[in-house]
């Protein structure tokens, strides 16, 4: 029971990190019809910026906060210099070009930060654990990550669903041509959306940096899952991304934790261990296949036509 609660919190944390990535990805795909494989690179760059800025400032909080505008600017630069030329091209061209960007960033960090993975040491007050229930300790930092993820998700939900700019973003995602013909500069709106999306991906990288090793290629695994989230939630739908991200985060974490034990009921111990681990890592793709078979447009389709 205690383990289950811990795993649920871990799952929520993974889900919220996935949401931070998927939010930008889904809007970029929805509004500009651009498949951006380099989105995971912005996640990675967030983590590396945090490594250096925490080093320079000597403060975890200050360094992490400064890394955010750095990723925002990097995102806008990538959009203006490179991606803007790709909107009218085919998805295959976009995949090739953004895959090129991904390789470029992976090598760039090797040149600048070296081959060895980097770690970020947390300040003492974040290295403690908190008793979430009597007798159940949980890492204070992980709780902070969950809280930050929730605050950002709430802020994003408010912006998208309650403000004028949010209405325009949603309008642009459902019908770009008509949005433009009503006087909205979709290209500029999009630069902003892309920059903020990059910043959110960067935030996920920054928050994950103290938990994981910061290294070249760290964006790829999470990008693949974030793409699954995007497709599952419905391309262009932030609400869909949120629901799908939390579902996948929880499902992935819980399946990896508990499937081997569950299978032991019907299988010999060693077979259950192998099968459970394999099934645990497959289960989110299975969910995607089933969802797409039933609802090809995802859970919350934006283009309801």
């Amino acid at each position: 029971m205690i383990l289950a609660l811990e795993q649920i919190l871990n799952g929520a944390q993974l889900g919220l990190m996935l949401f931070l990535l998927a939010a930008g990805l889904t809007l970029v795909f929805g509004i500009m019809n651009l498949v951006n494989l380099a989105h995971g690179s912005l996640y990675m760059m967030g983590a590396y910026f945090a490594v250096t800025l925490i080093d320079w400032t000597g403060s975890f909080v200050l360094g992490a906060l400064l890394a955010l505008p750095a990723v925002l600017l990097l995102g806008i630069a990538v959009e203006v210099i490179c991606l803007r030329r790709l909107y009218a091209r085919s998805h295959l061209d976009q995949l090739l070009a953004t895959f090129g960007l991904l390789l470029f960033f992976n090598d760039l960090v090797l040149v600048i930060w070296g081959k060895a993975g980097r770690t970020i040491a947390l300040p003492g007050w974040l290295r403690t654990s908190v008793e979430i229930l009597p007798g159940v300790p949980y890492s204070a930092y992980r709780l902070l990550v969950i809280a930050a993820g929730l605050v950002v998700a709430l802020g994003l939900w408010f912006t998208i669903s309650r403000t004028r700019i949010g209405m325009r973003i949603r309008a642009g995602a459902s019908d770009r041509e008509i949005t433009g013909a009503l006087g909205i500069d979709v290209a500029s709106l999009f630069s902003l959306v892309f920059g903020v999306g990059a910043m959110l991906a960067g935030l996920a990288g920054i928050l994950n940096a103290p938990i994981l090793t910061v290294q070249s290629g760290m964006g790829e695994r999470i990008l693949v899952i974030a793409l699954v989230v995007t497709v599952l939630g419905g391309i262009g739908s932030v609400r869909g991304a949120f629901v799908a991200a939390l579902s996948i985060g929880l499902l992935d974490t819980l399946a990896r934790a508990f499937l081997p034990d569950l299978l032991k009921v019907v299988l010999p111990a060693s077979a259950a261990q192998t099968a459970g681990a394999a099934a645990g890592s497959m289960i989110i793709y299975l969910l995607m296949v089933i969802t797409l078979a039933v609802r090809p447009q995802g859970l919350f389709p934006v283009r309801a036509r």
Binding site: R164, M167, R168, R170, A171, S174, I178, S237, R303, A304
Partner: peptide
């Protein structure tokens, strides 16, 4: 815009 309410369609 199918994903906007009537009011939002007018205001966007």
């Amino acid at each position: 815009f199918p994903n906007l309410s009537t009011r939002e369609n007018l205001l966007a």
